[in-house]
Amino acid sequence: MHESSLPGGFVNAVVRVGDTVRRPASTRTTFVGDLLRLLEASGWSGAPRYLGMDDEGREVLGHLDGHVAWEPQQPASVSSDESLVTVARLVREFHDLTAGSPLAGGREVVCHNDLSPKNTVYQLSGGELRPTAFIDWDLAAPGARVHDIAHVCWQYLGLGPSVTDVAEVARRMRLIVDSYELTDRQRLVSTILWWQDRCWRGIESQADAGDVAMARLRDAGVVRQVQTAYQWVLDRRGVLERSVQ
């Protein structure tokens, strides 16, 4: 069948074949397959179906129709308060489905670990785009609820120098944690900083080790961008922490 490249895949080559998506297998393939099967068996529609492996050794996933927000400029409805509320509630749903499961491995839940608009499928609802599903689960692993919510705050709010209204972004952080009903709020901002520090250091170390994809990210200036975002959050840590208490 005809293969067509899907946009937005900076690290992995992802293609569409009919109603399926094919992506390179990794050491996480078995875990991700088990996770997606668990979510499907629970009746949750917020993730693609796992359909096994193809003859080329690639993961085969069901294709999810909709708008994936991978480009820098997006319709206003993608970043609206209503969409943020829906994202937070979707995260709560799959966290609750994995809590106490063998896949959580004694941790609170299974985390996606890469939640962002670029990994979110949006569909029209009442004439506006709203989040309906998350894709790219290859970094999923046991973790704490606050890990994913911190990543949501960083990525969906674009925390960094591009923020012009700190009070507004603080309000929207509160909207996210309230919609999720997060109890572990005192660690939220420190976890955002942890993610940012971990991100740029991971890119650097993997690029130095010869990872071509990570080298491309570094060459594109991503390390500096994340470092700058880290400093922005650090400088406003007190304001952001008070906003979610």
Rank of each mutant, 00 (worst) to 15 (best):
M1Y: 09
E3T: 12
S5Q: 10
P7A: 11
F10Y: 14
N12Q: 14
V15L: 04
V15H: 09
R16Y: 02
V17W: 01
G18A: 07
G18M: 06
V21M: 02
R22F: 00
P24F: 06
A25I: 04
A25N: 06
T27W: 03
R28A: 15
R28L: 04
T29I: 12
V32A: 10
G33N: 07
D34Q: 15
D34H: 12
L35T: 05
L39Q: 09
A41N: 13
A41M: 06
G43H: 03
W44K: 11
W44L: 14
S45E: 10
P48L: 06
R49Y: 01
Y50C: 02
G52R: 03
D55Q: 12
G57W: 10
R58H: 12
R58L: 09
V60P: 01
L61I: 08
H63F: 15
L64V: 14
H67N: 04
V68H: 05
V68G: 08
A69I: 07
E71G: 09
Q73T: 10
Q74K: 12
P75Q: 03
V78Y: 01
S79C: 02
S80V: 05
E82F: 02
L84C: 11
L84W: 06
T86V: 15
R92H: 08
E93G: 08
H95W: 07
D96Q: 12
L97H: 01
T98L: 07
G100H: 10
A104M: 02
G105T: 06
G106W: 08
G106Q: 11
R107C: 09
E108V: 03
C111M: 05
H112T: 08
N113V: 03
D114P: 08
D114I: 11
S116W: 03
N119G: 13
N119D: 07
Y122G: 09
L124R: 13
L124P: 03
L124I: 07
G127Q: 10
G127D: 08
E128D: 11
L129W: 06
P131T: 07
T132V: 15
I135W: 03
D136T: 12
W137F: 15
D138T: 11
A141S: 15
P142T: 06
G143Q: 05
A144N: 10
R145L: 07
V146S: 05
A150W: 00
Q155M: 13
L157Y: 11
L159V: 03
L159F: 01
S162M: 14
S162L: 14
T164Y: 02
V166P: 00
V166A: 04
V166N: 01
A170I: 04
M173H: 04
L175P: 02
I176C: 07
D178Q: 09
S179W: 04
L182Q: 08
L182D: 04
D184L: 06
R185F: 02
Q186M: 08
Q186F: 04
L188K: 13
S190G: 14
I192E: 00
R201L: 07
E204V: 14
E204M: 12
S205E: 14
G210L: 00
V212R: 12
M214R: 11
M214G: 01
A215H: 04
R218I: 00
D219E: 15
D219M: 09
A220F: 03
A220H: 06
A220P: 02
G221P: 06
Q227M: 14
T228Q: 13
T228N: 11
A229L: 01
Q231F: 02
R236F: 04
R237I: 00
R237S: 10
R242E: 12
S243H: 02
